[in-house]
Nucleic acid binder design. Sequence first.
DNA 1: GCCCGTTGTAAGCAAGCACTCACTCACACC
DNA 2: GGTGTGAGTGAGTGCTTGCTTACAACGGGC
Lengths: 179, 179
Amino acid sequence: MATPSTRMTARERREELVEAAIAEFAQGGLGGTSTEAIARRAGISHAYLFRLLGTKRELFLAAIDRAFGRVIEVFAGVEGSPPAFADLGAAYQGMIADGHELAFQFQAYAACGDPDIRERVERRYMEIFDWVRRATGETVDETRLFMATGLLISVGSLIGSDLLSPDGSWSARVRGAAG
Amino acid sequence: MATPSTRMTARERREELVEAAIAEFAQGGLGGTSTEAIARRAGISHAYLFRLLGTKRELFLAAIDRAFGRVIEVFAGVEGSPPAFADLGAAYQGMIADGHELAFQFQAYAACGDPDIRERVERRYMEIFDWVRRATGETVDETRLFMATGLLISVGSLIGSDLLSPDGSWSARVRGAAG
DNA sequence: GCCCGTTGTAAGCAAGCACTCACTCACACC
DNA sequence: GGTGTGAGTGAGTGCTTGCTTACAACGGGC
């Protein structure tokens, strides 16, 4: 890596860095992931990582913004006006099917002992909650049920248990409840 | 700590060690917690920790067994035969109100990238699920709804958001659904 | 008294950690 | 050809980590 394969703007490089950070943090969490591993995955030197993002924690915060923000992006791509809970759920399930998004999300929850991180996660989670409620036009209670179901499916996916997320459970449960 | 304040059996000491481990792991997770901090909290030397539990990961696994097992213990203390969802929920909320149980639980989910840990968490989570279903005599679907609500309240508590866990939401929602 | 298994510790090792510093290289513009 | 600037790096620094080894203190049984 004496000469970089491609030279890009700092902005582009930061995007790639955050993406690499999500993937690495997903496995080890804030405490268990080395900045060296992240830099290696991003294809840059260890030193340059710190120039781009400042500190390990700031990198983690940027990863939170990106990962939670992407949930809304995916939801926004769902057809129908208003979109149905079942379709949002299916889109979410597609998003977490592979990749590191889901594992990272739980690393973010787990890191909420840190006040800055907690505050950021709260803001981003509530953003999703509010977006869903506004987009679907449902009540707070029904939105809550949707989010709760999402968490159960997430944990089920994390621990690899089929029982918790059989195909169709989402649509059956939520469509039944939402009318 | 030149001479230990009280000398106890290895079994007793192990109990205290696991308790201390839950508290410390709750803050930093598997990767971000030092065994030295755990030993200090338990009031024993760093070296003795390894003699008692072997390795950091084994200590984490023991903490999972204890923390998830305690949920069932708390549930088993709830009156009524069969116990109502609302009462189980209230007991759970009381249990996570303070202490490190909740944060540790999410550290366990987050550490599921490790196959051994994933397997242990799955087993313990399913144990709770099955216990609840059998004790209440409810359907799988209703039990799922109960567990999902538990997760939403847990995340709400972690990120400090009132919106997600207003008082009475559990009883209102679940009692309504369960009849 | 003294033995011996168990509880417990002090001291250290090799590896890994986040972060820094001084530096090189490519390019744009005059 | 000189000069300024942003992209990118190699080689550390001082500290922490998980884990080991060798040794000490206690206490019950004879």
